[in-house]
Simulated assay, not measured.
Amino acid sequence: MASLIYFLCAITALACAVLVLRSYRNTRHRLLFWCGLCFAGMFAANLLLIIDRLVMPDTDLSTVRLIVGLIALLPLLYGLVWEDE
C-alpha cells in the first residue's frame, strides 16, 4: 500500500509541474515559473523517496531527500519574495 502512495505522490507532483509550466508558457507570469520549478523539485524528492524506500531499502537517503526538498522550495521562495507583477 505504501508503494502505491509513493507513486501517486510522485505522479501528482509531476502532473502539477507539467501543468504549471505549461500555463507559464502560455501566460508568461513569472510566479508560475517558480512554482513549476518547485513542483519539479518535489517530483525529484518523491523519486528519491521511492528509491530510498522501495529500490534500496538498506541504504538511508533521508538526508539527500531532505536537501533536495529544501532546494526544491528555494525557487518558490525566491519568486514569492522578489518577484513583483
Rank of each mutant, 00 (worst) to 15 (best):
T59G: 09
F39R: 00
L54D: 15
P57N: 14
W34G: 05
A40I: 02
A45N: 12
R65D: 02
I71D: 10
A40G: 11
R65Y: 05
R65V: 03
N46T: 08
D60Q: 06
L54C: 13
N46E: 12
N46A: 13
G41A: 07
A45K: 05
D58F: 14
C38G: 08
S62C: 03
L47I: 15
G69V: 03
C35W: 09
C38D: 07
D60T: 03
L66T: 07
F43V: 08
I50G: 03
N46V: 00
G69D: 08
F43A: 14
N46M: 09
D58Q: 15
L47Q: 12
I51H: 03
N46G: 09
D58W: 12
F39H: 05
L70V: 15
W34M: 09
R53L: 10
A72H: 02
L54T: 12
L48R: 01
V68T: 10
V64D: 02
D52L: 00
L47P: 06
L37T: 04
L49W: 04
G41W: 00
R53I: 10
M56H: 14
W34F: 15
D60A: 07
L37D: 03
R65M: 05
A72V: 08
L49V: 11
G36Q: 06
W34V: 11
I51G: 01
F39W: 08
F39G: 08
